[in-house]
């Protein structure tokens, strides 16, 4: 009897110790669970506040550009706001510029748009003392301070030269261009100029995909129907190449067609590796973003940079992919 009492008492004591410990544990848990709304008091005020307005928010090319800008911004003590339309929409882009002016940011970095409203907005920014840098696409007749981006004419020219080399100077070329914005126009122009001296190369036509992969495929197909003798395609925007490649694969002409594309999206590189796409013109969005922020800081300190700052463009082929994959992070 006495023994059972002991055991019972011991169990009670054990239970007491355990529940007491649990109480303390949960008490400390509640103590350490801070239920507070975000309310940081010591926010580090950035030195500069720039806004980067892309053509399209969720686009690998623009994200790479944003990364370059953010890295440069961190270095310069600049906060980079990245705001743009979810899908390509120039009206919205212009509206965002106007908003940025009303928000009195320190600098605006935006893709150039060939529209009077854009010029008007840039004018107002200038009047409000906010410098504007165009990036990727220029708007030369606006009051923008500087353009930073590829030399699109040169890029087109490079593409033309590559095509001549790749087809030994004999080809019927179909051109799919994103839209008729100045960039694309220059890319087409450069290409045309490059191949014009080559008598064996004939251009079958130029069609716009409206920067849509599906439309690019449609236009490619149309062109095929119209000119069955086409032996090469040139896509001037990132998605055009993918659309062309999709059609080429479908008709089993991937090997016969010489496809030259723009930009180095992972998918593009994949197709390049498979040999569907033969070459692509690669721009350097990261360098653009990085450079734009640096230039903006210079502008704010009244060191007038040149009106145009070109970043490098290169042509990459299957052979370059291995090295490309290695250093894809920064272009």
């Amino acid at each position: 009897m006495k023994k059972y009492h002991r055991i019972f008492f011991g169990l009670l004591l054990l239970g007491f110790a355990a529940s007491f410990g649990m109480s303390i544990y949960f008490f400390l848990k509640t103590l350490h669970t801070n239920v507070v709304l975000a309310n940081e008091k010591d926010i580090k005020e950035p030195v500069y506040h720039f806004i980067l307005i892309p053509e399209e928010m969720d686009n690998p090319y623009w994200r790479s550009l944003k990364k370059g800008a953010a890295d440069a911004g961190r270095h310069a003590g600049a906060a980079i706001e990245y705001i743009g339309p979810v899908q390509t929409n120039t009206d919205e882009q212009i509206k965002i510029i106007e908003k940025a002016i009303a928000s009195k940011v320190d600098g605006i970095i935006t893709q150039g748009i060939d529209k009077p409203a854009f010029k008007d907005a840039i004018h107002r920014a200038k009047r409000a003392g906010i410098p504007v840098i165009t990036i990727d696409t220029d708007a030369p007749d606006s009051e923008r301070s500087t353009y930073i981006g590829s030399d699109n004419y040169l890029a087109g020219y490079l593409a033309g030269q590559t095509l001549i080399k790749g087809t030994n100077g004999h080809a019927v070329v179909g051109i799919i261009t994103g839209n008729y914005n100045p960039n694309e126009k220059l890319r087409v122009k450069g290409f045309q100029d490059a191949v014009s001296k080559q008598s064996g190369i004939k251009i079958a036509g130029v069609k716009s995909s409206n920067i849509s992969r599906i439309q690019a495929a449609e236009k490619t197909y149309e062109m095929f129907q119209k000119h069955p003798d086409i032996t090469a395609f040139y896509g001037t925007s990132a998605l055009d190449g993918l659309g062309i490649a999709a059609v080429a694969e479908k008709f089993g002409k991937a090997k016969d067609l010489y496809i030259i594309s723009f930009d180095a999206l992972p998918e593009t590189l994949n197709l390049l590796g498979k040999g569907v796409i033969d070459a692509t013109v690669k721009q350097k969005p990261y360098a653009m973003g990085h450079k734009s922020v640096q230039t903006m800081v210079q502008l704010l300190h009244h060191h007038d940079p040149p009106k145009i700052l070109y970043t490098e463009t290169t042509v990459i082929k299957k052979a370059d992919i291995m090295s490309e994959k290695g250093g894809r992070g920064n272009d």
Binding site: G15, S19, M22, S23, F26, K29
Partner: peptide, 9 residues
């Protein structure tokens, strides 16, 4: 949990 533990305690 704390309430239950304290109750048992």
């Amino acid at each position: 949990y704390m309430g239950i533990s304290i109750f048992i305690t």
